[in-house]
Computed example of a mutant assay.
Amino acid sequence: MEVSVLNINGQETGKKVTLNENIFEIEPNEHVLWLAVKQYLAAQRQGTAKSKERSEHNGSTRKLGRQKGGGGARRGDINSPVLVGGGRVFGPTPRDYSFKLNKKVNILARKSALSQAAKDNEIIVVEDFNLDAPKTKDFVNIAKNLKVNNKKALVVLPEVNKNVYLSARNLKNAEVMTANALNTYKVLNADAVILTESALKAIDELLTK
């Protein structure tokens, strides 16, 4: 698949790049996409939910009533789970929700996401660019020139560029990341994936090892 290379003014440069068919033209694997999105969202969870169990409550350990003959459940002390204000049985405890996926599964998921984006004509390739200073206004102008100012835009750079990152940080519908940090969720969540020429080469190297 050939794609025209644009400059940051939204004009065609006359150059074209061929998207790697092993990355941008495979049949998306829906199950693998689901796994990768599930992994990403699970890793975002804080996992700090906590309730007190019987042994963690402050209260007297005096036995409240007879073991038998009361006509109800054996309840022991005032911290018993059968009493209002007592400990909770099998309550939540702090935990880590993240889980691992095989490296090949992760690679396939990213390829599937990029292929889906290419299929939906969401891939935009631009010349390598830099900003002289971090200015949100400059980034907004670039987005308008590329006609993505009303879309969720994901800009992929070959390496960290502080000026570009800071220029996009305050924008609700824009995100900047490097090629090696690219993940399935971010690609699927974007309406437009803007790749610089160098980032495209970096993605080729990362996903075709």
Results as ranks from 00 to 15, higher is better:
residue 32 V to I: 15
residue 33 L to K: 10
residue 33 L to Q: 00
residue 34 W to Q: 13
residue 34 W to C: 09
residue 34 W to R: 12
residue 35 L to E: 04
residue 35 L to F: 07
residue 36 A to V: 08
residue 36 A to K: 09
residue 37 V to F: 04
residue 38 K to W: 02
residue 38 K to N: 09
residue 38 K to G: 00
residue 39 Q to L: 01
residue 40 Y to C: 07
residue 41 L to K: 03
residue 42 A to D: 00
residue 45 R to E: 00
residue 46 Q to M: 13
residue 46 Q to D: 05
residue 47 G to D: 06
residue 47 G to K: 02
residue 48 T to G: 06
residue 48 T to C: 02
residue 49 A to R: 05
residue 50 K to R: 15
residue 50 K to G: 11
residue 51 S to P: 02
residue 51 S to Q: 15
residue 51 S to E: 07
residue 51 S to G: 03
residue 52 K to Q: 12
residue 52 K to T: 01
residue 52 K to Y: 00
residue 52 K to H: 00
residue 53 E to C: 01
residue 54 R to Q: 15
residue 54 R to W: 02
residue 55 S to W: 06
residue 60 S to Y: 03
residue 60 S to W: 06
residue 61 T to F: 10
residue 61 T to C: 09
residue 62 R to W: 06
residue 62 R to Q: 13
residue 63 K to Y: 08
residue 63 K to R: 11
residue 64 L to Q: 05
residue 64 L to G: 09
residue 64 L to R: 07
residue 64 L to P: 10
residue 65 G to K: 12
residue 65 G to I: 11
residue 65 G to W: 10
residue 67 Q to A: 14
residue 67 Q to P: 03
residue 69 G to D: 06
residue 70 G to D: 10
residue 71 G to D: 03
residue 71 G to S: 08
residue 72 G to K: 13
residue 73 A to V: 14
residue 73 A to P: 05
residue 74 R to I: 15
residue 75 R to K: 13
residue 76 G to C: 13
residue 77 D to I: 14
residue 77 D to C: 10
residue 78 I to A: 03
residue 80 S to I: 01
residue 80 S to D: 12
residue 82 V to L: 14
residue 83 L to K: 05
residue 84 V to L: 13
residue 84 V to C: 04
residue 85 G to F: 08
residue 88 R to M: 13
residue 89 V to R: 05
residue 89 V to K: 11
residue 89 V to P: 00
residue 89 V to D: 08
residue 90 F to Y: 14
residue 91 G to K: 06
residue 91 G to A: 14
residue 91 G to S: 09
residue 92 P to V: 00
residue 93 T to F: 11
residue 93 T to I: 14
residue 93 T to Y: 05
residue 93 T to S: 15
residue 93 T to H: 11
residue 93 T to N: 04
residue 94 P to Q: 04
residue 94 P to E: 08
residue 94 P to W: 07
residue 94 P to H: 03
residue 95 R to L: 02
residue 98 S to N: 10
residue 98 S to D: 03
residue 98 S to E: 08
residue 98 S to M: 02
residue 98 S to W: 09
residue 99 F to R: 02
residue 99 F to D: 06
residue 100 K to H: 11
residue 100 K to A: 12
residue 100 K to F: 15
residue 101 L to W: 01
residue 102 N to D: 13
residue 102 N to H: 11
residue 104 K to S: 11
residue 104 K to N: 15
residue 106 N to Y: 04
residue 108 L to H: 03
residue 108 L to Y: 07
residue 109 A to F: 07
residue 109 A to H: 11
residue 109 A to R: 03
residue 109 A to K: 11
residue 109 A to N: 02
residue 110 R to A: 06
residue 110 R to Q: 14
residue 111 K to G: 09
residue 113 A to Y: 06
residue 114 L to F: 07
residue 115 S to A: 13
residue 115 S to R: 12
residue 116 Q to C: 11
residue 117 A to W: 02
residue 117 A to V: 05
residue 117 A to C: 08
residue 118 A to K: 11
residue 118 A to R: 04
residue 120 D to N: 12
residue 120 D to H: 14
residue 120 D to A: 13
residue 121 N to W: 07
residue 121 N to S: 15
residue 121 N to K: 15
residue 122 E to I: 09
residue 122 E to G: 04
residue 123 I to K: 00
residue 124 I to M: 02
residue 125 V to M: 01
residue 125 V to Q: 05
residue 127 E to G: 04
residue 127 E to W: 05
residue 129 F to R: 03
residue 131 L to Q: 00
residue 132 D to S: 01
residue 132 D to M: 01
residue 132 D to L: 13
residue 133 A to V: 12
residue 133 A to I: 08
residue 133 A to T: 10
residue 134 P to D: 02
